[in-house]
Write a protein that binds this DNA or RNA. Sequence first.
DNA 1: GCCGTTTTCGGCCCGACTGTTTTCAGTCG
Length: 570
Amino acid sequence: MKNKEIAELFERMADILQLKEENAFKINAYRKASRIIRDLSQNIEQLSQAGTLRDIPGVGEGIAKKIREYLETGRISKYEQIRQSLPEGLLEMMTIPGMGPKTVVLVHKALGISSVAQLEKGVKQGRLRDLPGMGPKKEENILRGIALLRQSAKRIPLGVAIPIVDEIVEQIKGRIKVGTILPAGSLRRMKETIGDIDILVAGGDGRRIIGVFTKMPQVQEILAAGATKGSVIVHGGIQVDLRVVPQASHGAALQYFTGSKAHNIHLREIAKAKGMKISEYGVFRGKRKIGGRKEEEIYAALSLDWIPPEMREDRGEIALAARGKLPRLVREKEIRGDLHVHSNWSDGSDTIEQVALAARERGYQYVAICDHSQSLKFAGGLSEKRILKQIEEIHQLNEKLSTITLLAGTEVDIKIDGTLDFPDEILEKLDVVVAAIHSGFKQPEEQITRRLLSALQNPHVDILAHPTGRLISSRPPYRVNLEKLFAKAAQTGTALEINAYYDRLDLNDIQCRRAAEMGVKLSIGTDAHHSDQLWMMRLGVAVARRGWLEKGNLLNTLSLQKLRRYLPNS
DNA sequence: GCCGTTTTCGGCCCGACTGTTTTCAGTCG
């Protein structure tokens, strides 16, 4: 998919135009188009061929023409042209926190500075001091910004942020009376990675609550501590902001701090068109406040249904809310079992029985034991003999256990040539066959796609695990043609996995939404290697919700009885 | 550059904070 490439080009064009002090609204138009194209679930090449580029919101004649040019020639001449007019380094200077386009242009024009290194030197030599609007504080801030940029504050995976927040919320609740306390920001939207953690408290004594917050044992550094806002760094270098607002504006503040920015801007545009105004303090008609205590009031004022936080990305949810057509997103309590869990028979750490008991504790009806197959030596893959023995043990355990059913499964490796690591005679004895790629990540797109399609073609394969192979913190996805994969999965009835392991989340939100649109069934599996990891189902459900999925899109919302009807072997 | 039951031209989200200002510009979320 060229979506990402094109989105990045438009983003870069916006940056350059900003340095050239072009019309701010034109710049905004490029940024908006960039964001929407990046979030698009459809392949932009197909839209272009179908002649429907102009149907994409934010894409008009000018941008559509540039997209077509890129698809045909691999470049955008306007981009090439404006890029030449500026030194490369200016764009990097803009990424320094606190440095905006005005300052970058100022130092470039006045002092000929055109890189971060030159800027640092210039500040230290005091060359910036006499420029208009400059002073000692600004100099200090620029140096601090450069240092910050070099540390490159990275985003943390959602699955790392959630336990941190849960812990903080528990501590505050345990020590002081608060009205309500909820995470906001990208964490409330359950985005796959989080920058800063935002927590919102409504009601209570602000100064005292923030006092408690800044004195928590995990706090390493206090950045700010006032009556309404506290800001700290906790272990791991993660910044956590806590805000205290009065109950009367809780809904408005929660809405505002939850975002996303694009979603909020869209809402404010609608409000403005209706003669209203939205801010973090409430909804206003003229000077009169017409809502803000509850989040629903903000949406209701605009004649919108309340939109679940996971959908607030301005990807079309506002239009659906206006028509009362929001999907009924799947909920965690609708999940009836986990279809991808490891035991100590391969590289997991718990016995099968321990896994079963932990799954029962979560209220599941079933859990599938899917250990690795024989080729995966480093992960303790099971030989044919061992897996037959494992199947036997699972059957015996099922005799013993009540109220939870173990499904005998495998995570069978899709080998380099596309064949499976167990013969059909083994696979047909299993309740659930999960297939996955663990090698040859660098193969060309055609080859990887062929491997995956041939796995889908095998009638014993029920689920394709982590379909893109990406690791959030360390590995890009392998090259796979997802459109072809989704079409084939829809045809064969093979489910695609939303792998809920915190560093995978694979398929991601946009991909699983597209798969569902194409008629593919999805299955959420935690890939847990320890019972303590079964909670990550929450992350998988979050991905599904961000992908607008309903209960009916998912395999493991089925009761055991219905699941068995769906899985031919079991 | 995009967009339209307030417009095909004239709009385009809202507020806080900072540091430099003497009434405001720049940056951020």
